[in-house]
């Protein structure tokens, strides 16, 4: 989707504002979004929060609603990897995946500054052992299945004289075996 304002860049900031009960959707590129001060997060005062870390985090991400009903808005930015929105995170107090840290870094950095007194890791112990990526491991386990599947498809393609397709399948088989 293209940005509503400049019409040139890809829109990555999606916001819904409700002003005097009128709902208005905005889809903006980061550049245009930065020109809208009302889209920046507002945080409640620390004093109003409970001491439970989970709800503290939730409260810190909760902005707007009670303080100014005319400008209440709901941010629908979502994580490209896991699909979690800021609203989901506010409800659970949990991120959906490790990429959420990048997706929501603008929102999380001030929260971390407040709750942890820092937003940057100080390197101490590092586990240096090089384990496997779980996604790769799942693929690895599926490999024999996928190979049989492709070999079947290859036979079928050849018998149907669909040679172009057969070549494609042969390349894929080579790729899997070669890995």
């Amino acid at each position: 989707m293209l940005c509503n304002e400049c019409g040139k860049n890809e829109a990555s900031v999606h916001a819904v504002t409700i002003i005097n009960g009128v709902r208005n959707e905005m889809h903006l590129c980061p550049e245009c979004a930065s020109k809208h001060p009302e889209l920046s997060r507002r945080f409640e005062s620390l004093a109003a929060m409970t001491s439970r870390p989970r709800s503290l985090f939730r409260n810190l991400l909760n902005f707007g609603f009670d303080t100014d009903p005319f400008e209440a808005m709901e941010n629908i930015l979502s994580c490209p990897t896991c699909g979690e929105t800021l609203d989901d995170i506010r409800k659970t107090g949990l991120f959906g995946c490790s990429d959420c840290y990048d997706t929501f870094s603008d929102q999380i950095i001030p929260v971390l500054e407040k709750t942890q007194g820092s937003s940057t890791h100080k390197e101490g112990e590092v586990q240096k052992e090089n384990g496997q990526n779980i996604g790769d491991a799942v693929k690895e386990e599926k490999k024999p299945d996928r190979l049989t599947e492709l070999q079947e498809a290859l036979k079928k393609a050849i018998s149907e004289e669909a040679f172009e397709k057969a070549a494609e399948i042969r390349d894929e088989i080579k790729k899997i075996k070669g890995e």
Binding site: P53, R54, L56, F57, G93, L94, F95, S98, Y101, I108, V111, L112, T115, Q116, S119, T120, H121, K122, E123, V126, Q127, K128, E129, N130, G131, Q132, N133, I134
Partner: peptide, 22 residues
């Protein structure tokens, strides 16, 4: 860690579901 690669970033360290443990 010898068999599983952990979620880690230089900026935030070990990445946890709750940012309260990151």
């Amino acid at each position: 860690n010898g068999s599983v690669k952990f979620a880690y970033s230089d900026r935030f360290g070990y990445l946890t579901a709750s940012p309260m443990n990151v």
